[in-house]
């Protein structure tokens, strides 16, 4: 559990009632990770989503390592050497790991600490259960998720265009 005051510091939680903040605080924990540690990998089922208190987190894709040849059996077993491609970096006050709230609850990308990080981990599976009882709370949280993801999509599109323009 974390203190409600800690959650209240972040604009992300604005607009939520005292009861909603209390609920979130009860299913949240503070977590520290060293640089290069992973929060989760792509395709992993997520039980939490995260708000960054301190540090920088990279949203990553794993790509096959260049110049490494793999046998057919290795390819079938998916036993191939990979490298991380950091697609974007998020920092203090940002939220990531949204897939934990949306079926099938699988991460669409990985996340790893770029610098030492302190985050608030919010139990997404508990929250999904709570949404079943409190639709309004569910709406408010998914609306926030939609806004964050839409903004991230816009930023990524601009970044893609910059590559095209180069």
């Amino acid at each position: 559990m974390v203190s409600t005051e800690l959650l209240r510091r972040y604009p992300f939680f604005s607009g939520l009632s005292r009861d909603h903040i209390n609920t979130l605080a009860k299913i949240s924990d503070e977590l520290s990770l060293e640089a290069d540690q992973y929060f989760f990998h792509e395709e992993e089922v997520l039980n939490h989503f995260y708000l960054i208190v301190e540090g920088a987190v990279g949203i990553i894709f794993k790509l096959p390592e260049r110049d490494v040849k793999h046998s057919i059996s290795e390819q079938f077993a998916r036993d191939i050497k990979t490298r991380d491609l950091v697609l974007s970096t998020v920092g203090s006050g940002d939220v990531f790991g949204w897939s934990g709230l949306i079926p099938p609850y699988k991460a669409t990308a990985g996340a790893k600490a770029i610098t030492p990080c302190r985050v608030i981990a919010i139990g997404s599976q508990e929250l999904v259960g709570i949404f079943e009882e409190d639709y309004q709370f569910g709406y408010l949280m998914t609306q926030k998720a939609a806004q964050v993801i839409r903004d991230r999509l816009r930023d990524l599109r601009i970044e893609s265009l910059a590559f095209i323009a180069e």
């Binding site: 491609l85 709230l101 079926p103 669409t108 569910g138 990524l156």
Partner: peptide, 30 residues
């Protein structure tokens, strides 16, 4: 409110899928 949450959830899912597709494109470009 149940319909509201349902639509919101499918909209977030669709946005996430679009974000994923854009990330794949960017990964390919970079």
């Amino acid at each position: 409110p149940g319909l509201n949450l349902g639509f919101q959830t499918v909209a977030v899912k669709a946005t996430m899928e679009r974000l994923h597709a854009t990330r794949v494109q960017l990964a390919a470009a970079t």
